[in-house]
């Protein structure tokens, strides 16, 4: 008799615990759904408000006091140029740093400090980078409130992302590849440039794209530098008709970028401007989503194709 009771008791306990399993599973799905639905609401809200404003004119007009004729020409041109500077500065430095830490650095105190420091830099709020750029680039080095200062500030900001991506991509290459190269008499740099970098290129590229996608949306550091919110002209063209054909004047030009344009429109009380903000936000979100989507796709392809 006793035994049957025990069995029932055990069944009861198991049932109770299984019920907790079920409850938690439902909670998990609900939490995930809340995140998904929030994103859907955000996107739908912007789509409804912003879609009617999206037209060819919106991309080819300067900002204006009349919301119906305002556009994002100076903003997207500014964003493109700033991203160009950011990529040119951050990519070689980030890859170089990652390669050094993975392949060259000996295990000593300095290496450990650099490693901890890269982690710490990733945790520094973006606005602090803006203050650094304001003090260092804008005033100390005299770059002014220019595309160059903004591009460099964002480059510093995404440097940790590129470094970490490079390191992870290089680390996943088996030692046998390196040993094979050395056995054939390759020097360290030949091994890195002919073997390790090509094999890790997809992983590094993923990191660069994610970093740039983050930089495109960054607003705070660029506001801190003192980017203007109302720019009704374009920076001087980098291509000239007379010798030497290429000009770097645009680097020192005043500018605005997409997120600042959007911020400017959001903070106006008139509703018509907020519709413009929705349209600019839509363009911005589609841009970052496309970049992040590309990065995710690249990583997926990489995982599928590479089998060491």
């Amino acid at each position: 008799m006793k035994r049957v009771n025990d069995l029932e008791e055990i069944r009861r306990i198991i049932g109770l615990h299984k019920r907790w399993d079920l409850i938690f599973m439902i909670t998990g799905i609900i939490a995930l759904m809340i995140a998904v639905l929030t994103f859907m609401a955000l996107f739908a809200h912007m789509l409804v408000d912003g879609m009617p404003r999206l037209s060819w004119d919106f991309f080819t007009s300067f900002p204006s006091r009349r919301p119906e004729s305002a556009g994002i020409l100076s903003a997207w041109v500014g964003t493109t140029l700033v991203m160009l500077v950011t990529a040119i500065a951050a990519v070689p430095l980030g890859i170089g740093s990652g390669v050094y830490l993975e392949e060259y650095a000996s295990k000593n105190l300095l290496t450990e400090i650099i490693e901890i420091n890269v982690t710490n830099l990733a945790g520094v709020p973006s606005i602090i980078y803006g203050l650094l750029a304001l003090g260092l680039f804008v005033y100390q080095l005299g770059f002014g409130q220019s595309i160059l200062a903004a591009g460099l500030a964002l480059a510093l900001l995404i440097l940790p992302v590129v470094i970490v991506a490079t390191r992870e991509a290089i680390r996943s290459i088996p030692v046998a590849i390196r040993e094979g190269a050395y056995a054939l008499g390759a020097t360290k740099w030949q091994t890195v440039s002919d073997h390790l970098l090509p094999y890790s290129s997809a992983g590094i590229l993923t990191g660069i794209i994610i970093g740039l996608a983050r930089a495109i949306g960054e607003t705070a550091p660029i506001i801190t530098i003192g980017a203007l919110t109302f720019i009704a002209f374009l920076p001087p063209s980098p291509v000239k008709s007379e010798f030497p054909y290429i000009s770097f004047e645009w680097l020192t030009a005043p500018f605005t970028v997409m997120p600042i344009q959007m911020f400017n429109w959001v903070s106006r009380p008139e509703e018509a401007f907020q519709l413009n903000a929705a349209a600019a936000g839509l363009v911005l979100v589609v841009m970052t989503l496309a970049m992040n989507g590309l990065a995710i796709y690249l990583r997926y392809r990489m995982r599928k194709n590479i089998k060491w």
Partner: peptide, 16 residues
């Protein structure tokens, strides 16, 4: 999907 959610610019969240 969560990764994409993390990639949305903060200024857009401010608007939201």
């Amino acid at each position: 999907f969560l990764e994409l959610l993390g990639g949305v610019p903060t200024v857009v969240y401010g608007y939201f």
